[in-house]
Design a protein around this nucleic acid. Structure first.
Lengths: 205, 205
DNA sequence: TCTGTACAAAACCTATCCTTCTGTAAACCC
DNA sequence: GGGTTTACAGAAGGATAGGTTTTGTACAGA
């Protein structure tokens, strides 16, 4: 609650009072739980409204359409991860390498535990795609958002090279981490250590 | 033809004379072209046999099943990329960073031009999945094979750290490059330059 | 601001039939 | 050995027609 602007702003409609945000959050929470339980394709606006204790019309007023709801759901989940990243860097104000380790670990650890992400990714390995299309077709957006957040976090540190090189280093970290989210090869802690080691080598003066 | 063993061995049946390999290659070439033209799901063993000028039974004798054919097709295509990687490093015997740049550029450049890969990846953005399941469910295998080949290429160079660290550096390069194959953010040349710069920073003594 | 009802168009499920495809087997030909 | 042809059962893939659910919008009311 330090007033730091996160992605949560993107998950809210243009104008809304506190009660509207609460309604919105309630719907998203219901949609999340229902998706984990029965899969995205089995979530209908009617069932969702009943589950949230609201009318179907309210759900439509809030999200416009089912894909609007999907987008909000994805963005809300993404915000969880970005908050973890920001917290990790805030916890290591003087040590960029430690911040990288913490952020990477936080993301991979959350990815392992996150029910929604697990449902989507494991569904991709098995049978139905469900929400996966929304992740793969919007992968460029996800990459861009993650890059921007990381760049903002890194503005607080001194790096021994210019912004252009910083951006590509960030690109490498983001893509490698995301690759491990989809296709892990070892434990979050090990992967975080590895990426921190690479970061340390790159950052050496 | 220097006798360097590549992945091509994996794409051949246990025992076969020259003519058998030719038959196999003919079938794979037909399957490749047909997949590019009409999509993997529209490739049937019957049409494939007719297109190759062979009998349907021969196709079954050679690959066992349609998924056996798919695996051979993917491995053959993968071998193209790995050959590019090996050639790039062979062209820069004394300069590891230049080798990295060449290999990354070669892979991304080929990925842009490769009809089969384009068909599979662009299909993933659009409607049908087709061959994509075979790529995503086997992504761990692809990663492992790519890592192994890269490690073998790098054995010819002196790196200023031990094997464990080399393996994770390779992991980072492979995952980042593959990420750019699926989701490019700039030109192959630019991305190759960027990754080479990171490699240079990491390799600094 | 949220609810309830009503409504058209689209999407989805079910059952049926027909066609195609897969995978295996055997007989046959260099 | 390498290849072809024919034959076959079972799985899988349209196409068709029906009935049901769902989507998205509209509007009157608490």
């Amino acid at each position: 609650m330090t007033g730091a602007p996160t992605l949560s702003r993107m998950t809210q409609p243009p104008a809304s009072a506190a009660s509207a945000a609460s309604t919105r959050e309630r719907i998203i929470a219901s949609a999340r739980g229902m998706t984990v339980r029965v899969g995205w394709s089995a979530v209908s606006m009617g069932r969702l409204a009943a589950d949230s204790g609201l009318s179907r019309q309210t759900v439509y007023n809030e999200f416009g359409s089912k894909s609007g709801l999907a987008e909000a759901l994805v963005l809300t989940e993404l915000a969880l991860f970005l908050d973890v990243v920001e917290a990790a860097f805030r916890a290591e104000p003087g040590d960029l390498v430690a911040g990288v380790r913490g952020a990477v670990f936080g993301v991979l650890d959350l990815a392992e535990r996150d029910e929604l992400l697990r449902a989507v990714v494991s569904a991709s390995h098995g049978a139905n795609s469900d929400l996966l299309p929304l992740l793969t077709t919007r992968a460029d957006t996800l990459l861009a958002v993650a890059r921007d957040v990381l760049l903002r976090c890194l503005a607080a540190y001194d790096v021994p090279f210019d912004d252009a090189h910083l951006e590509m280093a960030v690109d490498v970290v983001v893509r490698t981490t995301l690759s491990h989210v989809m296709q892990p090869s070892s434990s979050p802690a090990t992967t975080a250590d590895d990426l921190a080691w690479v970061a340390a080598r790159v950052l050496r003066p």
